[in-house]
Design a binder for these strands. Structure first.
Lengths: 212, 212, 212, 212
DNA sequence: ACTCCCGGGACTGCCCGTTCAT
DNA sequence: ATGAACGGGCAGTCCCGGGAGT
C-alpha cells in the first residue's frame, strides 16, 4: 500500500500546484512546467496521473465540486432550515473561496470553460440545484413567500454571488468579500422572505460568519 | 489623407478580429496569428499599430469602455430619471453584450486582468461610478429610498449584473440574458424603491427592451 | 542647396549612430531600428541614403578608412622618418580607436566581414601597405636592418597591433591601450632597428603620445 | 546507461553544429534553426540540453577552454622547458585553430562577448596565465632574460598571437597561419632570449610543427 | 530631391503539450 | 515514474519596400 500512498501524495501535490496556477493565470495562461516545477514533480509523473492538461483541469474542477458538495451535505445533516441553509451556504462558500485555491481554481476554470466547447457546467448546475432545493424547503417552512419561483431565484442567487465574488476579487483581491455578501443579502432578502421574518434572517446573515 | 484612412481601417479590422478572439478564447488563449489571420492583416501591420499583445488588449478594452460610456452619456442627455437610467443602462449594456463582440471581449479582458499585475479596473470603476451617480439622483428624485447607500448598492448592481451575464453565457450562450436581467430587477427593486412606485419601475424594466 | 545640406546632415547622423551600434553589438547584433532610433531618423530616411544594411556598414567602413588614411597622409607630409612614421602611426591609430566610434566600428566590421563572403579587406590592405612603405623607407634611411623584409614585418606589426587592441578592449575596455602599445614596441624594436639606434626609437615611442 | 549515452551524443552533436555556425557567422549572426538543422536535431532536443542561446554559446566556450587547457597540461606533463612550452603552445594552439571549429568558435565568441555585458574572460585569462607561468619558469631556467616581466610579456604574446590569427583568417582563410607564427617568433625571440640561445630556440620554433 | 507612413512577411529565440523507451 | 526528445506554435522584430507628401 506504500506504493499507492506515495502515488496519492504525488497526485495531491500536482492538483494543489495546478490549482494555484490555474487560479492565478487561468487555464491557457498556465504551463505544465509551472505546475511541475512548483509541485516538485517531473513531467512524466504528471502524465502518469493525468492524460492531458485538460484532464488535469478536470481533476481540479472535480475536487472543487466535491468540496462544495461537502458544504451542502453538512448543511443538510445539520438540519438547519431551508433559508438558513441558503444563506449559510453562501458565506461558507465565500470562505472556501478566500481560503482554498482549489476552490478558486475550480470556479475560474468552470467559468473559462464556458467559452469552450463541451462546457463543464456540472459544478454550477449542482450548486444551483442545491440552492433551489433549499429554497423549496424554505417555502414549505413558510420562511419564503410562496410566490417565489425556486428555480429562477436559485439561478439569480448563484449568479449574483458569482458576480459579487468576481468584482470583489478584481477590486480588492477578495478582502471585502464577506461584507459584499452581507450587502447582497441585505438587498435580496426583502423580496424573498415574508415580512415579519426579515429581521430574523438578517441576523442569520449577520451572524453567519461570526458563528464560525 | 488616403493614407491615414487606410491606416484607420486596418486598425479597426485588427481590433475587431482581436475582440472576437479574446471574447472566445481569453487573453492567454488567443494567439496573434489567430488575429492577423482573421483580420486579413500581416504581423507587420499589427506591430505597427500595437506594440504588443498587451497593448492590443488594452486597445480593445478602451474601445469597449468608450462604447459603455456612450450609453451613459446618451442616458444623461435624454434626461430620464435616475432610477430609470440605472435600469435602462443594464438592459442596454446587456444588449451590447449580446450584439457586440468588442464589448464582450472588453469585459472578459477586464475580468481576466484582475488576476494579473497592474489591473485595469478603470472600465469597471467608471461603470460603477455612473450607476452610483444615477442612484444618487434617484434618491433626490424620491424614487429610491433615502436609506439606500448609493455607492454600496451601485457596486452590488454591477456585480450582480456581471454574474448574471456570466452565468447566462455559460448556461445558455447568453440567449436568456434579457430574461435574467428581468429576474434581477424583480428581486432587487423592492429593496430600493419606495413602495408605491414599485409597480411603475417594474414596468420600466419590463418595457425597457420592448421599447428599443 | 539647403536641401543637400540637410541631406548631408542626415547622412552623417545615420553614419554616426550606425557606427556606435556596430561598434557595440557587431553587424548582425545591430538592428536598423536601433540606428534610426538613436539617430532620430525614420526608416524611410535611412533607406534613401543607404540601400541596405550592408550598404550602411560599407559606408561606415569607408569613413573609417578615410580617417586612417588621413593619418598616413599627414605623416607623409610631415616628412618624418620611415620608422618614426610607423611608430607614430600605431599610436595615432590607437588614439583614434579610443576616441572615435566610427573608427572602432570600421575595424570591427572589417574583422567580422572577413568571415563573410566578398570580404572587405581594402582597409586592412591599405594600412598594411602604408606600414610596408614606411618600413622600406626606414631601411633606406639606415634605421631598420636591411635583412628585414618589409612586407612580412608590416603584416606582423598590423596583426600584433590588432591583437593588442582587441585584448585591451576585452580586458580593460581599452583603458590601457597606450601602455600595451608601449609594450609592443619594447619587444619588437630590437629585432628591427640597428643596435645603436634602439635607444633613440625607444624614446620616439615613449614620447609619441606625450607629444600630442 | 544507454539513455545517457544517447543524450551525450546529442549534446555533442549540438555543440559541434553550434561551433561551426558561431565560427562562421558569429553569435548574433547564427540562428538556432541553423544549428538544429545542421545537427539533425529538433528544437526540443536543443532546448533540453541548453536553456538558451547564450547557454549554448557558453557551452562552446567551455569546451574550447577545456581543449586549450589540455594542451597546457600536456606540455607541463612532458616536462619541456618553460620557453619551449610557450613556443610549442602557440603552434599547437594554431593547429587547433585550423583543425577544430570548436576552438575557432570559442575564441570568436570570447572576443565578441568582450563587447557585451558580463564578459567571459576566463578562457583568455587562463591562457595568459599559463603563458606567464611558463615564462617565469623560463627565467629560472636561464633561457629568458631576467629583465623580462612575465606578466606583461605574456599578455603581449597572447595579444600578438590573437592578432596574427585574425589577420591570417581575414587575408588567407588561415592557410598561412603557421608561417605567420614563425614570423612572430622571429621578431619577438631576440627580445626575450639570452643572446647565445637565440639560434636554439629559433630552431625549436622552426621544428615545432614539423615534429608533430 | 528628400522624407515619412504604413505595411509585408519571413524569421527569431523560446517554450509548449506530448510521447516513448527504460 | 524518469530522462530525453519531438515538432509545432508562440510573441516579437527584423529588413525592407512602395506610394504619398513636402
Amino acid at each position: 500500500m506504500a506504493r499507492q500512498e506515495r502515488a496519492e501524495l504525488t497526485r495531491v501535490a500536482i492538483i494543489r500546484a495546478a490549482a494555484e496556477a490555474f487560479d492565478r493565470f487561468g487555464y491557457a495562461g498556465t504551463s505544465l512546467s509551472d505546475i511541475t516545477a512548483s509541485a516538485g514533480v517531473t513531467k512524466g509523473a504528471l502524465y502518469f496521473h493525468f492524460g492531458s492538461k485538460e484532464d488535469l483541469a478536470r481533476g481540479v474542477i472535480e475536487e472543487q465540486h466535491a468540496r462544495a458538495m461537502a458544504l451542502v451535505d453538512r448543511l443538510v445533516k445539520q438540519g438547519v432550515s431551508g433559508l438558513e441553509a441558503v444563506i449559510k451556504l453562501s458565506y461558507e462558500f465565500a470562505e472556501q473561496l478566500v481560503a482554498d485555491s482549489i476552490v478558486r481554481a475550480g470556479i475560474r476554470l468552470t467559468l473559462e470553460y464556458g467559452t469552450f466547447e463541451n462546457p463543464i457546467i456540472d459544478p454550477y448546475r449542482s450548486w444551483i440545484q442545491a440552492t433551489e432545493d433549499f429554497l423549496s424547503k424554505a417555502i414549505e417552512e413558510n420562511d419564503v413567500r410562496p410566490t417565489v419561483m425556486p428555480d429562477r431565484v436559485a439561478q439569480f442567487i448563484v449568479s449574483a454571488f458569482t458576480g459579487v465574488q468576481l468584482v470583489s476579487q478584481v477590486l480588492s483581491g477578495r478582502r471585502d468579500l464577506q461584507q459584499r455578501v452581507d450587502e447582497m443579502w441585505e438587498l435580496v432578502l426583502p423580496s424573498l422572505v415574508v415580512t415579519r421574518k426579515i429581521p430574523h434572517f438578517r441576523s442569520v446573515a449577520a451572524h453567519a460568519m461570526a458563528a464560525r
